[in-house]
Design a protein around this nucleic acid. Structure first.
Length: 430
RNA sequence: GCGGUAGUGGUGAAGUGGUUAACACAUCGGUUUGUGGAUCCGACACGCGUGGGUUCGAUUCCCACCUACCGCCCCA
């Protein structure tokens, strides 16, 4: 029996991991510019944390939760998304307290889990980078979060980006719209697809999202959420649009946009990218919105929140597909070639000395012949090789060779150990 | 969870119910018993996803399972 990784998981090997590191570091830099601080919360929580917040009818809860009973009979779920856990932590640690500057701005990056059928860009364990903001209801913050998301994707070098926004309004607006939608759809009940018939009663907004052609025909003439926003909600949304205009951030309003999780209010948005890497047309890579009320739901005070999540796997696929260049920091300054077993100790000393002085250095560990060692040096793209054999051992010298030019000189080992930099600048500067 | 396609060495892949499973790349070794990127030579599948079955005999036929990919659902 051969071991294989669990369904829907992936090994991220060094070559790939390098890209991930680059993306994560880029994100960290940007988050720092926007004054967001990192928060790390558990990868699993009590099942209720997610079921309460995401909505009992959402698919995430009903069928995609990666949950189990632990040995203490606790109902545990691996986090399917980042927000609920962060909100829980926010409440539990009383980050809403007066000693914390508002808004509280945090970011996270890490594994998420959903029990579903894997496909390209969707796995059971996947990774998200996300941000959350607490304590401000101002549209300015909505726009800042959106702008940061756009900024982030631009930093990653993505092209053909589209921002779509919508507003779900406050709880009252949403309730009113929900009823209006049911009233409109009910007469068409028999024409709706099976899926939509179920959705109609569980979560009518989701019908808007249907990909069924017949459904889309019907939905086309459905009332728009935007007509059901009350004055406050409308004002909020108008302000968001105006601020986006001010920042010259292009956007498209999609009144049919619905998010998968039930906790959203007011502004919701999706940043999409047009690429074949993730199927035809535009695919969402970053999505988020406002969730006023969620903090209260998890036992905290009344406190507005907003955030977004970005899918790492999808991001990597898109960056690869669009040919984004990842800076490669993989330089090997020197490869030390030792000829004969007696040289191994001296080789070790040289390699370590170089490293201590900040050079990337490597050597042979398989007791291979010089030819093979030079092959390795070449393959590893070493800038210089330092060769030491028996005669050099006696004279306390070594041969330093530039792999690019082939020029080779003999220098004292002490010099290499103490000031390799000087050797390079005075002998190989052409 | 449903439907479809696929599964041969490190990689890409050819192939057949029956003696030694092509070819290419990569890797390693040799050609130069102390010097690289070229050439040439050589090595490299406990055996064809796993487990059963049919058969005198299966990598090749059948079944189940696993995994990957695509579509649905949903979503990052």
């Amino acid at each position: 029996m051969r071991y294989q990784r669990p369904k829907g998981t992936a090994d991220i090997l060094p070559e790939e991991a390098r890209k991930w590191t680059y993306v994560e570091e880029t994100a960290r830099m940007l988050f720092n510019d926007y004054r967001y601080q990192e928060i790390r919360t558990p990868m699993f929580e009590n099942f209720d944390v997610f079921s309460r917040t995401s909505g009992d009818t959402s698919d995430v809860v009903t069928k995609e939760m990666y949950d189990f009973k632990d040995k203490g009979d606790r109902h545990i779920s691996l986090r399917p998304e980042g927000t609920a856990g962060v909100v829980r932590a926010f409440v539990e640690n009383k980050l809403y307290g007066p000693e914390h500057q508002r808004p509280v701005k945090v970011f996270y990056m890490g594994s998420m889990f959903r029990y579903e059928r894997p496909q390209s860009g969707r796995q059971r364990e996947f990774h998200q980078i996300g941000v959350e903001d607490f304590g401000s209801d101002e549209p300015e913050l909505d726009v800042e979060v959106i702008a940061m998301g756009m900024d982030l994707l631009h930093h990653f070098g993505l092209k053909d980006i589209r921002l779509e926004i919508n507003s779900l309004g406050d709880a009252a607006s949403r309730a009113a719209y929900r009823q209006a939608l049911i009233d409109y759809l009910d007469p068409h009940f028999d024409e709706l697809s099976k899926d939509s018939q179920v959705r109609l009663h569980k979560n009518p907004l989701r019908v808007l999202d249907s990909k069924d052609k017949q459904d889309q025909e019907i939905v086309k003439d459905a009332p728009s959420i935007l007509d059901y926003l009350n004055d406050d909600s409308k004002k909020h949304f108008e302000r968001v649009k105006k601020l986006l205009d001010t920042l010259h951030i292009p956007y498209v309003i999609d009144p049919d946009m619905v998010r998968g999780l039930d906790y959203y209010t007011h502004t919701i948005f999706e940043i999409m990218v047009d690429s074949k890497a993730l199927g035809e047309g535009y695919t969402t890579i970053c999505a988020g919105g406002r969730y006023n009320g969620l903090v209260e739901q998890l036992g905290g005070p009344e406190m507005p929140g907003i955030g977004f999540g970005l899918g790492m796997e999808r991001l990597m696929l898109l960056m690869d597909a669009q040919g984004v260049k990842f800076p490669v920091l993989d330089q090997l300054d020197a490869y030390v070639v030792g000829i004969g077993e007696q040289t191994s100790i001296e080789t070790l000393k040289i390699v370590q000395a170089l490293r201590a002085n900040g050079f990337a250095a490597d050597r042979d560990y398989l007791n291979r012949k010089p030819k093979a060692q030079f092959k390795s040096a070449d393959k590893l793209n070493a800038q210089y090789t330092i060769t030491i054999g028996e005669s050099e051992l006696e004279s306390h010298t070594a041969n330093v060779k530039s792999m690019a030019s082939g020029k080779e000189i003999n220098v004292p080992i002490d010099k290499i150990i103490n000031d390799f930099d000087e050797i390079i600048t005075s002998n190989f500067n052409d």
